[in-house]
Structure formats: C-alpha cells, structure tokens
Design a protein around this nucleic acid. Sequence first.
DNA 1: TTGTAAGCGTTATCAC
DNA 2: GTGATAACGCTTACAA
Lengths: 338, 338
Amino acid sequence: MEVSGISTIKDVAKYTGLSIATISKYINGGNVLEENRRMIQEAIDVLDYRRNEIARGLKTNKTMTIGVLLPSLENIFFTSIVSIIEGILQQKGYGTIICDFKEDPTLERKKLEFLLNKHVDGIIMVSYSKEKEHIQALLDKKIPIILLDRMIKGLECDIVLADNLNASYQAVEELIIRKHRRIGIICGPDHTYTAEERKKGYVRVHHDYDVTIDDKLIRNGDYTVESGYQALVDLWKMEHPPSSILVTNYEMTIGAIMAVNDLNIRIPDDLSLIGFDNIQMAKVVRPPLSIVEQPMKEIGETAAKLMLKRLNNDYGDFPEVYRLKTNVHIKESVSTNI
Amino acid sequence: MEVSGISTIKDVAKYTGLSIATISKYINGGNVLEENRRMIQEAIDVLDYRRNEIARGLKTNKTMTIGVLLPSLENIFFTSIVSIIEGILQQKGYGTIICDFKEDPTLERKKLEFLLNKHVDGIIMVSYSKEKEHIQALLDKKIPIILLDRMIKGLECDIVLADNLNASYQAVEELIIRKHRRIGIICGPDHTYTAEERKKGYVRVHHDYDVTIDDKLIRNGDYTVESGYQALVDLWKMEHPPSSILVTNYEMTIGAIMAVNDLNIRIPDDLSLIGFDNIQMAKVVRPPLSIVEQPMKEIGETAAKLMLKRLNNDYGDFPEVYRLKTNVHIKESVSTNI
DNA sequence: TTGTAAGCGTTATCAC
DNA sequence: GTGATAACGCTTACAA
C-alpha cells in the first residue's frame, strides 16, 4: 500500500478501526492493549504518519520553534554560536528559525516582528539597537528572550556574552609584560557596547600597571575591514608609532593585516600585533597571529540551555548574566620590546 | 489599556462588537464598512493582535516555513548562501528553519526527518548521502526539494550548484597558459560529487592542451585542513615536485598554506598556488592568493527563487538544473613558469 | 482500555 | 456587509 500526501491520526484510526483518541494516546505514550499497539504501529509505518506539530501547537500553544536573530550570517563568530544552539535545541524538539538583519537596525525591528508573527516560543538575539522598548515589550509578554554578545543598558534581560573588558585587558597585559609601553588599539565604534568594554580593558590595564596612556594611540574603527586598514596606516604613520597594536574584532584584524602587508611592516620586529576572533585565519598568516579568542561554543551552549530553562518556565535567578571568559593566544606575532 | 498575553481574533471581535468572521475578512483584505474598518484597526493596534500563523496553517495546510539542511554552519560558503536564501524567503513570509548535520550522514537523515515532522513547506539541502531513496520519498510526496552544491546520480530533482568541472578546468588552464606542465591537484574524497567534477576538469584541460598527466600529481584529501596540509607536504617531497598546485576547497587551502609556511616554500618563486572559496582570506595571506570563487550569492538567489516557484505550484521545467559559473581570480601567488 | 466530544485560532461557506 | 458555523489535526477531560 502506497501513500499519497500526508496522513493524519484520522487515517491511522481508519486503518486500525480504533478511535482517534486511542491513537493519540498511543502516540503520547499512554497505555494501549498489546494487540492494538501492534496494529497502530503497523498503520503508522505503512501510512508514514507523523504527528502534525502545527495542529498540536494550536492546542498546546507552542510552536516548538525558537527564533535566532543575528546581525550577519557571514560572520563565523555568530554562525558558530548558531550551530551549537541549533544542535541543542533540536535535541529537545525545537526548530531554529534564523533571521539575519544584515547589520541594519531597521531590518532588526522588522525581522523581530516577523519572528513574533511566527509565534516562536522564544528568541535568542544579538541586538544592534540602542533602544530597549521593543525588547521590554516582549519580556512583558513573557516571551523568553536571551540577548547575546552585547548588553543593553537598563534592560532586565537574560544575557550571555564574552568578558570583553577582560579580553582586551589580558591581551594588552601580555604586551605590557613584554615591555611594550606604546600600545595602539583599534577600537570599534563609540557607543557600541563591545567596543566600549574593550576600550575600558585597555585603559584599566594601563592604570593597573601604571603605564601612561597616549590618547593618540586609541583609534576608532567601525568594525569593517576598511576601517581596520585605515586605522593601522594612521597608527603607523604617527610621529611616534606604537611598538604593538591590538585590533578588537575580526574584520578590522583582516584590514590591519592587509595594511601590514602593504606597508611592508615586519611582524613582530617592527610591530607586535594581536588580532581578534578567527583562530583559523590566525594560523595561515605568517608569522602566526596572536589572537583573542571568544568562547563561541560556550556562549552557544549557555544560551541554548538558558533558553530551555526559561521555556520550562523556570524563571529562577532571572535575569541571569553570563560573562564568559576569553582566551588570549600569544604567537610569534608578538615579541618582547627592546 | 494594556495587554497581557497574546490576543486573538476573538478578542478583537469582543473589542469591536463585530463577529469573528468580519474581523477575519478585514484582515484578509475583504470589504468592510469604513466605520468598522477603523474600529477593527484600532482594536488590532490596542490589543497588539497578530494573526496566529499556526492556526492559519492548520487551515491552509501550510506552515510558511522552509527547512534548510546543511553539512556545516561553520563554513562561510554555506552560510553566505543561507543568508541570501533567508532574506528572499522572509520577504515572501517564509521562515527559514536551519539544520546543521555536522557533516554526519546519520545526522543528515535524522534532521531531515525532524524537518518533515515540523511540516516545513519545502526543503533546500546540501546532501552528503549517497543514497537517493529518502529524497525520492519526499519528491513522491510532492514536497518541494531543492538540492544545493552536489548532484545525486539518478535522482530527478531540482538542483543548483557551481560548475565545478569548469571551475578547476579554468584554474588549471590559467596555469597551463603560464607554461606550467607539472600541475599538482589536491582533490576531495573520491566518490564525492564535487571532488569528482573538479578532478574531471583537471583531466579534461590537460587533454585539451595536450599536456601529459602524471597521476602522482593527483592527491586525494578529504576536504579537511589536515589533509590539505599533508597533501601539500607529500607533493612537495616528491622526486619531481610540481611547479604549481590547485587546492580544491577552502579547508584544504588553509592546510596547504600552513604547509607552505612550515616548509618555507616561496610563493610563487618555488611554487604557484591556487586556492578555493574564501576571497577574504586570500587577501590577507602574502602574497595575495589566487582563488577560485564560487557564486554564493547567485546560488542562494537561484535556489530561493526556484523554491518560491515550486511553492507556487509551478512545476514547469521540472527538474531544473542550474550550473552556475565560477570565477578564477589570479593574483601574485601564480607566476609564469620558466 | 477505549471512545465521545469540546476546543485551540483560523478560514471559508453559507445564509441573512 | 455581516454573522453563524463547520472544518483543519490534535489533545484532553470525562464518560463508557
């Protein structure tokens, strides 16, 4: 017997001669006579019946889907996190609906709206928006939201992110330990959470080691390849260029390396360099690049598990803030300053 | 008036004093008295009503979601494609449920099953499986499937992929034109569609230019970084090493570059090198790496539009096969052989 | 253990 | 133009 189309409980009921309720009970693990058990299972196999989660959701008021809203799907930092999240949620029966807002706050709003219309059971998101109202509105509606990667001031919300401040603190510390005293930093745009945190770390470690800061060594990029390139050129062309530079995201790191190549700067003889985020790339450039590595896997795991907890209606410790530790890998691109 | 929870048509009906049917009609663009129009819209705004797509799907037998099943979310080639697909589908109201099978054929089956249980309206997938039965089963059920990146022999299915054969043909052609006669190639695993196609291109262009092939110059990796590294080392340690090498995917390209660095091979003086897929990385290594670039954007666009067409029940020209052209970017990593 | 029937939020078909 | 009402596939009391 072959099937056309998709079969329902009704079909299984017809096939077995039992009632819909009995089939439903069997499916949900209830007690059914051994004989009926066999018949039902046979019917299910033959008809290739699969429970319609949609109809089920109508009853249970769940869609068994989680929305994941990201600035970009072309950024390995985010997609690695999604990969982990998807795997964990899937094991619990949740589908992951992905939305990429192309780093455009307007699109962010639109896609958030879209996810709501899809009635996702929860949302995990990286927000670029400075406002908090739209997110607060969701919290008020008791829709579980988990923020990733950046904080929004004054918003009481679960959040999972890297310890950005100590990430740059430790990276710069490695440079200071190696006798560097003029340390450049290529920051992200002002008023951006991660950028501000990373700058704070730079400042704090200077204070802790009692090293004077030359403000001219602090450059703002905008997290793009081009801005990283330009910032490195600017730093290099200074009257007193730095002996080492920390670049604070992946794209700008790429730009900085391109500039280093174009300017024929010898790493680490002329300049020590520490980049951000992409371990794989760090291995292929020469000499091997020192890198600040964010704990993508841990971020994803933590976020997924926290989401599961909230879905389970466990709001203990709300809001929870996980600030996960980064790793600094010092490679040959950093030398001791003479 | 503030809302708690989520409101339904019923709530809007109560608020306005009209019937559910009328509200539904308004929502779906039917004719309603101007006065009622206003009232209803007001109610919708106040109550923040949004149509429950789940309930709607129960009626229309659509979930307005598309499953995207991929080998990996840590591969920029795939995620760039997803980014495009998601954008296009979203504009038409479709959510994109993503599944990453971690390059594990068992997981592939499981997650495909998962997507079916979620009753997605269509599936776009990159399959690693050699069997075709499970996909054929879906086609029989009239669930739109679009295959990406690789063909499955003997399966009548819509498919969108890069012209892998001519990709390697053209890359090797560039080397032959530059007087290279011993050209190494680091292939993917045998019996893998893309790998076989890329090898065919290598062979064909040799024939077309009447260049003898030394089988020892053809190495099989398994598309991992490590295998790329090892294959390059092996090629280099040959009695008569090649004067140029084509590496046929991104991961192996990374491995090859690492080997080049470790062996202190001068590019392009000692060896000309062409890699695959990641344009951004090609810019940061030194000298700039020549690259075969696959048309990710076009692949995503084509797949999404074809899916939309099938969802629209337009099965004209089924099955359609799009074999999209790649680009070879020759940079300083390739020199003319002396 | 099994079956009946109500209800989840929509849409669609009828009367009115 | 509007409003009952049945139906979509499922879960879940409750009755048998």
